Simulated assay, not measured.
Amino acid sequence: MGLIRDQDIRALAVAVINTEMQAVAQLADRIDDQFVMACHLLLDCKGRVVVIGMGKSGHIAGKIAATLASTGTPAFFVHPAEASHGDLGMITRQDVVLALSNSGNTEEILTILPIIKRLGVPLIAMTGNSKSTLAKLSTAHIDVKVEQEACPLGLAPTSSTTAALVMGDALAISLLQKRGFTRDDFALSHPGGSLGRRLLLQVSDIMHQGAEVPRVFDSVPVSEALLEMTEKKLGMTAVVDHNGYVIGVFTDGDLRRMLEKSLDVHLTPVADVMTRPCTVIQADILAAEAMQIMETKKINALLVVDENKNLQGALNMHDLLRAGIV
């Protein structure tokens, strides 16, 4: 074998990506009545979606099953070879079978087809061969044919598995939308790790409350606001009236701008140099939304108010970091 140059490696990699991009782009024309029928079969399923596939298609089938399950469509993967040795008992008459096979003639899948048909279970086939046995015997057939594999030998499943994976995502997200599956529903199935924290945590769970919230009246001098900021350590203080209504906020940035004007911190009322109106949020929004607001507004802290704009709490970027939102 001759010496492979770095530019050859890059060229090969780009060729693979371009080939698979073309395969994926062609899938848009396959979203037809058969795809819609498959969606209806899955939506009407009273049991679970049983996803099967051999070899590389089996790996893709497992991922599709996981995506369906996490987006509101109960699903699990069954290995077709194991199915013929007892695992067929996992399939009930209430289920729907989604079978993946690029050739549409995978022996292990065809072996169990008579049992699936005997149960009267709807069969959705996802193949690259619309004339195959699996396609012909299916209730709905989704065509994922590709012009060529990205493998230069034309042997390793590459473009074909990518196409099947993308079509599986198209199914899952179509079902998610049709079911009205919400962000809260998604959170309930992903309670662990940073994803769960981002989806489940509300501002009320992490905000400072009560005596921890920095606040001063609008009539006090800046020096008093500075003492409050120093004690509460949030880099700002709320400025409120005597009923707790938020008038504005005094921040480190306001202090810097004030000092540039050579104003006296002991004589200048905080109301003269505070930021007003200020950005506020309510306690029942997601902490992840608070993070987005901070990033958009380029600020490091937020005041939390009720529906009447009375002060309820406060949080800053460090609180979000500690909660694992960032």
Rank of each mutant, 00 (worst) to 15 (best):
M258P: 01
T158N: 03
V265I: 14
A83K: 08
T133S: 15
V14L: 15
R276T: 06
A28C: 00
L263T: 13
K46M: 14
A83I: 12
D218Y: 13
H190K: 05
P74Q: 11
R322C: 03
L42Y: 03
L100F: 11
D264N: 09
T67C: 04
A61G: 15
I109F: 13
R118H: 13
Q148F: 04
T127G: 00
E108D: 12
A290K: 07
M258Q: 01
D284N: 14
A66N: 01
L27H: 07
V265D: 06
P221Y: 05
A83M: 12
A23D: 05
V14N: 11
L137V: 10
T251G: 09
K56T: 12
I293P: 08
A163K: 00
G128Y: 00
P221C: 14
N308D: 15
N105P: 10
I112D: 09
V14C: 05
E20I: 03
L41M: 12
D143L: 10
A23V: 13
H85N: 00
R5Q: 15
M21V: 12
E231P: 03
T139E: 11
A81S: 12
A69T: 03
L302G: 13
L263S: 11
M317W: 01
V270Q: 00
T19I: 15
R183E: 03
L286K: 12
D95G: 08
K233Q: 12
A140P: 08
I299K: 04
G58C: 03
T133N: 13
H242E: 11
A81L: 08
T251D: 03
R118P: 09
C278K: 09
V96P: 12
M291P: 10
M1F: 07
F35D: 08
H318F: 01
A163N: 01
